[in-house]
Design a protein around this nucleic acid. Structure first.
Lengths: 196, 196
DNA sequence: CGAGCGCTTGATTGAGTTCAAAAATCGTGG
DNA sequence: CCACGATTTTTGAACTCAATCAAGCGCTCG
């Protein structure tokens, strides 16, 4: 896993092998079974998780006990509560493992050190933030406007590779609809002979 | 207006008067009447607008011709299509003036120059991105979960100062509900003698 | 002062929820 | 490898919140 992470970092930030060496001691790894909770509400999210294998999710739980999925993260994706991580605030999110996973994680120190090491890393970080914003804006737009069917079709499109790995109820939670509704949407799409 | 912008920048970034002088020629200002469109869909958003006075909004328009408000910006707020600005992509947003406004705007060059000038400006920019993400995440969470009433109550709370300046239909558009529904929510809240 | 816009109200409709239960799928131990 | 219990998905029926359609009111600004 550490190799995979190293490759990811070097490929994406343009750091040299030598520069990476200076960061190596700030990188941790972990294997976790499905069901493992990595962050709980009200904790401060002091780690950013990078998924090498498997799948994680972040979500909130409302007063009714229902969960609302904010993000999925599979291979080569990051997941964390950005606000909590950056501002040292208690998190409103849970993060857990939904498919047995190999995970690399870092603390703020990694980022600080990397930013001192190379301006490229700063740009890399900014790029990640910008991409995040773009994706969130798209999602807000969908939540404002779209019907259940549209939301689902958009989800398939933007998450094609992981759709088949996710149980229906989690996709429903991500879309803000009930599992029953999503089941009906699927049925309706099948009727219109839609091929996923 | 240029003074107000200067003060904002110096207060928030810690740039010195002298450093700011080097940026001054990259700052533009503009007065615009209600109704003026500053950015249209499919254009590249090459300006970031800072509102000195008045109010702007950004929004999308769907196939049905309905608009969905993404953001309001009043005094001392920024507004732009971040993704389009950063990635030079065609924008999916419109930006227009909803209350006669005094506006300062900058191009990417301002940011690039300021970042070269001072590391503080880089941090300032990152902070702005992080705040933006935090706010968007909260909004996504509300859109996933909340009823019309909850969404409205949350809106009042987070936009207290501008609520009374916004026409009902725009608040409805921001919340993703119809003006009729919002009118009924308000009526119901009044009945429960809710004081705004 | 009248036309138009924004807000409210009423009646009706409809998409999605809720509750309940059957069917399908999964996973685990014998 | 099969069987059985648990979980997930599907289906059905009744219901609900918000959308739609339509009409009336009140204000403002041209």
């Amino acid at each position: 896993m550490l190799e995979q992470f190293k490759k990811y970092i070097i490929d994406n930030t343009g750091l040299s092998e030598n520069e990476y060496k200076e960061l190596e001691h700030l990188v941790y790894s972990l294997e976790a079974k499905k069901g493992t909770v990595l962050l709980k509400e009200n904790q401060i999210c002091n780690k950013a998780f990078f998924v090498c294998k498997g799948m994680l999710r972040s979500y909130t739980v409302d007063e009714m006990g229902k969960d609302h999925i904010i993000q999925f993260a599979s291979e080569n994706w990051w997941i964390a509560d950005r606000s909590s991580f950056y501002f040292d605030e208690p998190s409103e999110l849970f993060i857990d493992v939904i498919e047995d996973a190999e995970i690399v994680y870092i603390h703020k120190e990694f980022i600080k050190t990397a930013e001192k090491l190379s301006k490229n890393f700063v740009s890399f970080n900014t790029l990640a933030l910008q991409k995040n914003i773009r994706q969130m804006q798209k999602r807000i737009n969908y939540l404002l406007a779209a019907t259940a069917e549209k939301k689902y079709l958009d989800f398939i499109e933007t998450h094609r590779e992981i759709t088949y790995r996710l149980p229906l109820q989690m996709i429903a939670s991500y879309l803000g609809i009930t599992p029953e509704s999503l089941s009906r949407v699927r049925k309706e799409l099948a009727r219109k002979n839609f091929k996923p």
